[in-house]
Simulated scan of single mutants.
Amino acid sequence: MASLIFLTHPEVVIDPNVPVPQWPLNETGRRRMELFADALSGVLLSSIHASTEQKAMDGAAIVAKRLGMPYRTHEDLGENDRSATGYIAPPEFWEVVGEFFARPHESIRGWERAIDAQSRIVKAVSRIAAEEIGDTLIVAHGGVGCLLMAHLQQVEIGQESRPQHSGGGCFFVMDRESFAIRQDWRTIEEASFEDVRA
């Protein structure tokens, strides 16, 4: 019973002058990813996957280097497309995010609709799960992670369980074949993989 671990990238360098998909992990984010790599040391991963956004690739690269294996990138693992607005500073950003989840069938300020982002991430994860034969790690993003969780929990978008760390770096574990949830959201600091075969 192989597992799929879905991890949201941790803290990033916020630079309003750089497109959001190009933001790298900051020092805190990199340090937390090192902790996650340590926690994975007893898991025999067969593959590592990441979105094409820099922060996700940074996270995947840290784990891949520690475990001595490559990682693959997939554009359809990316965060919901927010290029219509670019960077929006908090607290306004969180207000728009709230609208994004509350009105999933509408485009909020030109953003990709939540329902479309959900369909995309579910298809991407399903494809990766079908292609692999062992335990798999996906490093992606919080927004699409919540949309994926809504699908897994079979609830309306916005009613799913949510990661509890404001800086990201949260994960859940699912059965790769059945898509049943084995572990709900945990932070990197709470990483435990007893029920992931080693």
Rank of each mutant, 00 (worst) to 15 (best):
Ala2Tyr: 08
Leu4Pro: 08
Ile5Asn: 13
Leu7Glu: 11
Leu7Lys: 08
His9Trp: 11
Pro10His: 14
Pro10Tyr: 13
Glu11Met: 11
Glu11His: 14
Val13Pro: 06
Val13Ser: 11
Ile14Gln: 12
Asp15Cys: 04
Val18Phe: 00
Val18His: 00
Val18Asn: 00
Val18Ser: 00
Val20Ser: 01
Gln22Pro: 00
Gln22Arg: 12
Pro24Arg: 06
Pro24Cys: 04
Pro24Ser: 07
Arg30Glu: 15
Arg30Thr: 15
Arg30Val: 14
Arg32Ser: 11
Met33His: 08
Met33Leu: 15
Glu34Val: 14
Glu34Ala: 14
Leu35Arg: 14
Ala37Leu: 09
Ala37Cys: 08
Asp38Val: 07
Ala39Thr: 08
Leu40Val: 10
Val43Cys: 11
Leu45Ala: 04
Ser46Cys: 10
His49Gly: 02
His49Met: 03
Ser51Gln: 05
Glu53Tyr: 15
Gln54Val: 15
Lys55Arg: 15
Met57Ala: 09
Met57Gly: 03
Asp58Ala: 11
Asp58Arg: 10
Ala61Ile: 00
Ile62Gln: 03
Met69Gly: 01
Pro70Glu: 02
Tyr71Met: 00
Arg72Pro: 00
His74Phe: 11
His74Leu: 06
Glu75Gln: 14
Asp76Ser: 10
Asp76Lys: 09
Leu77Met: 02
Gly78Arg: 15
Asp81Gly: 08
Asp81His: 11
Asp81Met: 09
Arg82Cys: 05
Ser83Leu: 06
Ala84Gln: 08
Ala84Phe: 10
Thr85Ser: 13
Gly86Tyr: 13
Tyr87Met: 02
Pro91Tyr: 09
Glu92Ile: 12
Phe93Tyr: 15
Phe93Leu: 14
Trp94Lys: 06
Trp94Phe: 15
Trp94Pro: 00
Glu95Lys: 12
Val96Pro: 00
Gly98Ala: 11
Glu99Pro: 02
Glu99Met: 14
Phe101Lys: 08
Glu106Trp: 01
Glu106His: 09
Ser107Arg: 06
Ser107Pro: 04
Ile108Gln: 01
Ile108Asn: 02
Arg109Glu: 07
Gly110Arg: 05
Gly110Ser: 06
Glu112Cys: 01
Gln118Tyr: 02
Ser119Arg: 14
Ile121Lys: 01
Ala124Phe: 02
Ala124Ser: 14
Ser126Trp: 03
Arg127Trp: 02
Ala129Tyr: 04
Ala129Pro: 10
Glu132Trp: 00
Glu132Gly: 05
Ile133Gly: 12
Gly134Met: 07
Gly134Lys: 10
Ala140Gly: 14
His141Phe: 07
Gly143Asn: 13
Cys146Glu: 13
Cys146Leu: 02
Leu147Pro: 03
Leu147Gln: 03
Met149Lys: 13
Ala150Lys: 05
His151Val: 01
Leu152Asn: 09
Leu152Arg: 11
Gln153Phe: 08
Gln154Asp: 15
Ile157Ala: 13
Gln159Ala: 15
Glu160Gln: 15
Glu160Met: 15
Pro163Glu: 09
His165Leu: 12
Ser166Val: 10
Met174Phe: 01
Asp175Phe: 05
Phe179Gln: 05
Ile181Leu: 01
Arg182Ala: 03
Arg182His: 05
Asp184Thr: 11
Asp184Cys: 02
Trp185Gln: 07
Ile188His: 02
Ile188Arg: 01
Ile188Trp: 04
Glu189His: 10
Ser192Pro: 00
Ser192Phe: 04
Asp195Ala: 12
Val196Cys: 02
Val196Leu: 06
Val196Trp: 00
Arg197Pro: 06
